[in-house]
Amino acid sequence: MMATKKISEKEIRSLLEEVKDPEIPVLSVIDLGVVREIKITGDVTEVIITPTYSGCPAMDVMSENIKKMLTAHGIGNVKVTSVLSPAWTTEWMSEEGKRKLKEFGIAPPHPIYKKKIERLFAPAEQVQCPHCNSNNTHRVSEFGSTACKALYVCDDCKEPFDYFKCH
């Protein structure tokens, strides 16, 4: 059995910076805001995470990869627990995460759109194109390649792009 190394919460957090969302590999679980808490009790290290969307298939992979990452760094007794409440929101995404998203070509969630649009046939949020920064864009589909994204097209540079929806 591997000896358990004493490690601080801060060190664990920096290891988790290396665990990426398999669907959006520029974002770490820390950037995404899914890591809620790190508890070190005796020799047990518990990482408490919360899912983004109920059906997001990437969550199981992230949970496995958190375990692998910490175990690979000599942390013996790792437990990953998923809690649902309070429900995840894009407000928990880090500023660093939003910057990385944009660089990757995905428009980051914009806090202006935080207010839920309940009205039917409401115009889609105006989202800035991550490629040419034009605001002259339109929504093609409210649902995209993953649960968290909508599909947009820029009317200036004509590039299609994903928008990480406010949730």
Binding site: P51, Y53, S54, G55, C56, P57, L84, V140, S141, E142, F143, G144, S145, A147, L151
Partner: peptide, 20 residues
């Protein structure tokens, strides 16, 4: 295509809720 993606996204949400 867009509505195919929409209905299957809804499906995914529902199956996620079912899992919980």
């Amino acid at each position: 295509l867009e509505q195919d993606i929409a209905i299957t996204n809804i499906s995914l949400d529902l199956i996620g809720q079912a899992r919980n």
